[in-house]
Design a protein around this nucleic acid. Sequence first.
RNA 1: GCCUUGAUGGCGGAAUUGGUAGACGCGCUGGACUCAAAAUCCAGUGGAGGCAACUCCGUGGGGGUUCGAUUCCCCCUCGAGGUACCA
Length: 938
Amino acid sequence: MDYQPRDIEQKWQKFWEKNEIYKVKNDPSKPKYYVLDMFPYPSGAGLHVGHPLGYIASDIFSRYKRLSGFNVLHPMGYDSFGLPAEQYAIQTGVHPADSTAENMQRYREQLNKLGFSFDWSREVNTSNPDYYKWTQQIFIWLFESYYDKTLDKAAPISNLIAAFEKGGSAAVNAVNSNEGSFSAEDWKNFSAKEKDDTLMSYRLAYRKVGYVNWCEELGTVLANDEVKDGRSERGGYPVVQKPMMQWALRITAYAQRLLDDLESVDFSEALKVQQRNWIGRSEGAQLFFQLEGHDSALEIFTTRPDTIFGATFMVLAPEHELVEVLTTADQKKSVSEYLHYVESRSERDRMTDVKTVSGAFTGAYAIHPFSGKKIPVWISEYVLAGYGTGAIMAVPSDDERDNRFAKHFDLPIIPVVDQSAFPNAEIGDKIGTMINSDFLNGMSVKDAIKAAIDEIEAKEIGTKKINFRLRDANFSRQRYWGEPFPIKYDSNAVTHIEHQLPLALPPLDNFQPTSEGHSPLARVSDWVITSDGMTRETDTMPGFAGSSWYFLRYMDANNSEDPFSQEAVNYWQDVDLYLGGAEHAVGHLMYSRFWHKFMHDLGKVPTKEPYKKLINQGMIQGVIENVYMLKERRESKLIFVSADRIQEFGGEENCAQVPVYVGFVSNYGNPDSYLNEEGIEQFRNWRPDNKEAIFETNDKGQLLTHSEVGKMSKRYHNVVNPDDVVAQYGADCFRMYEMFLGPLEDSKPWNENGISGVSKFLRRFWSLFYDQQGNWIVDESAPNAKELKALHTTIKGVNNGLKSFSFNTCVSDFMKSVNELKEIGCTKRAVLTDLVLLIAPFAPYIAEELWNALGNKDSIFNQTKFPTHNEAFLVSDTIEYPICINGKKRASLELPADMTQDAMKAEALALDEVKKWLDGNSIQKVIIVPKKMINIVI
RNA sequence: GCCUUGAUGGCGGAAUUGGUAGACGCGCUGGACUCAAAAUCCAGUGGAGGCAACUCCGUGGGGGUUCGAUUCCCCCUCGAGGUACCA
């Protein structure tokens, strides 16, 4: 029998499906292990070879855990709500549900070919009403909760109402965006609308005025990634920030917990740092500067209250609400000119050009709270409205930016930190001794910060304050293809919950947003107006709603009573291993951690964190092959020039680089890739314009191309479909090759240079069982010591590789093992049986086939005997020791494994070759590294 | 700028974490089989020198610790990813 991957793979695919081999039960008698992939958005383009990298790795690990006796949950599903499907609907009129269903079908077919052990009976699909019903339910829970600071967890809104009735706003210690305070009496007298508004400012899911990207010309709201440099990506029309009522989630209430619990999870340091930066905790003081001639005070945040005596001016963000109030008559002109200038600058200008110092004086003065001096109030764009209070006290002596500003506008600089004892310290480093600072003089910066805060609190001009960069999450999208909010408003605009779930999306055929920037849902009047005369919310939830809890649904995917049962979640607990791309480092991971903590507060999940361990697999990039095309034409014909000849044609600046389909290119991905005669012919026929083109080839008749590494994308004509690779080499080969390519977490360009080696390996592996005539050659006799050593070396290597997620070395170990067994002519059943089990996670099809051929009736994946190595087979009676003189190998000596170090030393020194090297030198030391080497120092 | 990473043959990458650097694969060279090719198999393959045994040099560069450094420490160069007037 020949190795025919196609036949084998089809055969076992059917077998697995028919016998439901991968169906997982919630079986408390077995230890659980949960392996999760970040579920894909089913895009129209289908899978390319980069997508399955993580799925292959997670599948290998799942199968390994399963073979080791664990009950493994390894599900798959689709993140199927989202913008692209809606955009496609706008262009083509095809309903997103239809295009999405088609794409999911295609994904599933592609995935199945690759031999994944997904339990499809647990498939999750975020746009299915059976699923989003529960997303809506969780939203309702968020809506009906507030964050109690005393309990440090979420609590029901009903508790809050009870407290308000008893003691007004003072009766609760809760996270909120409410400004005023009120008594129990006030609360009782509030109108329904006032009560609603008040509660809204406490709810974890709440409504507030937020800003959206509004494009007047297109008459629509745009997502952030549809806006480029302040203009719409499509059409290039101006985009403005327009205030609209928006739903938001109070993730900020969880900022500290999200930060603290990072300590308990196994994420890469890089990712933890990203999350920490995103949360952006900073400790400092919030304090007030009295404004001269005004009743109000200016509130600022600073992390350096110790430097307060160096504060020589104040700076407000141009958008600060006090700017208009403070500006004096004679400064009006320059301030409005400056505001005009700021407005003219795009977001991008502000970001790229951070060096330019600009600003304007308002004419107003603040009073320094300690010295009582008048200090001028300026405005400048380097102070951001969105952070802290949008105002700062500027300390030019100890802050780089303030310093630049002061020098530019010739403002006074008072040194307050003496850093002379620390020559390497730079401005702003929290190190040194306080000077010119009244009661702080002589203190270290660290002590001074504490003392300053104490004094500020004593004088009641401010408080110690922890500030977070993290913002509440905007939860509204003016779109159709998302979860509708289970919310409706009565005639007084009071918010009500829609309890009848799911609140399904109504049918629709016009997907354009309305001219007011509302979701197309707003046009479906019989849906918007409910039978009880209320008006529905027409915004929908963003993409991260459904993906924030999908991993919990897999635990109990077909439950129609609850999102998941307590039994299921108590058994599966959390995700043991989560694999996905690093692009979700902050978004998805932060939101789902937040939701999980919220559900934990409600007692619905037992764990504090959703994911124990996370691995970010690298991207498989594409190779982009470009041909050089001259900018000018000859007799209206295009001219393509070989890369080695472009100097003759005026160099790079006279050429454009045109990406060409990689299939035409010989040697693609290598520095000397080129189009040969055949490639040129294919390229000619590729595009009508190329038909008559002139090709300036080199003297070998080749048109050299220029290769670079980049995204795999239709645009670059470099998409490689896994189906094609599988058709040629088989899925087992594809799986092993993707692993063999390099470490899981590294990004690497796709190339097929080495795939023949893996393919050859699989055929050689097969040839341990069948000879060239197809005869079964497995030997029933017991393996000898040499064979057992070879086997157990492999078992050890593969197990270590699996545990450390270096699957590339596992593949190498297999190759080495087969080479060795071939060399010693071993086809012993006992050895091959273990080898088949060992390879099963990597190459499930060939393993299943050979397992069956070995006479086993049941699927190999129902075994729980993954081989573990026996150290006894690895140690031999004697060990070959290299003997080094001063680190250089000079001889070698075979010694019994159990020899004492003294005896080894004596043996080594007695060796004639060693004596020759020693020759008159005195020995300083002999270092014996057991099982490794002997080093003699002379 | 800051943070996180990384740098090893012609290429992808190994190295049990301080112990014979370059496993495994690709590519390349030579050979066997073949009319021939493909496939397969065998041998070689870091560099320099030597007929050879062998010698010297070699893990981005420079220094250090050590009997011994790809591995640990300091400085520098370059690459990748993230992030940015965050007060």
